[in-house]
Simulated assay, not measured.
Amino acid sequence: MNLEEFLRLNAPEDLASLTTSISTTCVDVWGNIPFKSGLLAGVNPSGDTQKAIDVFSNDLFTDALLTTGQAAEVASEEMAQPMSGKGKVSVAMDPLDGSSNVETNNPLGSIFGFYDRRLPSSGRSLVGALYVTYGGMLTITLSFGKGVHRFVAVRDGPKFTFQLHALDLKLPHKPEVYGFGGLRSDWIAPVKIFVDSLPSRGMRNRYCGTFVGDYNQVLARGGIFSYPQLATKPMGKLRLHYETAPMAFINKQAGGYASDGRGDILDIEPRELEETSPFYIGNSDLVRELERAVAAE
């Protein structure tokens, strides 16, 4: 089954149209990564230095999403203000996750959340989410609230089509991997104690510095990924609208749980588009164990 057939059977028209536009555009982004890796002089609204590929992918995805006529607005971590459209779905995106890793040829990604109301809004307003992985394969992992499914790009003559690669993905019951961002010296005590306990449980450290790449490890092998509360960044680094809520939505459909250390990421009511929080995602039992420890500090 290809992506077009799947969307026709399993997605409302607006989400199908938006997803199709992303599938077409991500092929162009993938092809341009080697040629637009240089730094620009600017910074995005969160203060991160931008690469040419950040701006290129942001502009390409924004134009494609608005052209569908299905987006009420497109908000991006690369733009100070959302772009308005004529549709009913609010789209929040990280157009290129992990661009600082271009030079090391690590996996990169794009993350999209589809909200049924204007932003800012909690993750409970999500009606769908997907992420693209640019690696050895070009894949789209998506959920519209009924399971998690993955499609892989396959060359079909001069173009690519996305074919079903995995249906109804679930986190394995036995966790194998973990990855925690930030400097260990900045981790709060409960995080240090928890991480120190993981090797004795038979778990291995896997961390590449791209959220999408690190989460793919967790989804495939079971475990936990985190950019935790830090002494220097008590509210963490990852952004709710653009990164953590969409990924938490997908992870929940895969049988997992995501927390800010106090409760479900999807329950947070952000007041600003750029709001961040500590983030812990993966197998429910692991995340809830760490959540209890953090909350008790």
Rank of each mutant, 00 (worst) to 15 (best):
K233P: 00
I53R: 02
E13L: 11
A296D: 15
R206A: 05
G179V: 04
V43G: 00
L169A: 09
G263L: 13
Y115L: 03
N2W: 07
S37Q: 05
G282D: 01
F151P: 03
K146S: 06
S23W: 01
K146G: 05
R124Y: 01
I33R: 05
I53S: 00
Q163I: 03
M203N: 11
G179Q: 08
K237V: 15
A258V: 09
P246L: 13
V74Y: 04
K86Y: 07
L18R: 05
I224H: 02
V148F: 03
L142Q: 07
A254H: 08
G128H: 02
P95E: 09
G261S: 00
F225G: 01
K252Q: 11
G128V: 02
S185P: 00
I53M: 09
V27T: 14
H173M: 08
L3W: 12
S76F: 04
I250E: 10
G87Y: 06
D48A: 03
D97T: 11
Q253Y: 02
I140L: 15
Q50V: 15
T161E: 14
V74I: 13
T244C: 03
A153S: 15
P45R: 06
T139E: 14
E4P: 01
G98D: 08
P278S: 07
P34E: 01
R118G: 11
S121N: 06
T244E: 01
T104V: 09
V89S: 03
L7C: 03
V27M: 12
K86R: 11
I140N: 04
R117K: 12
L266G: 11
P120Q: 07
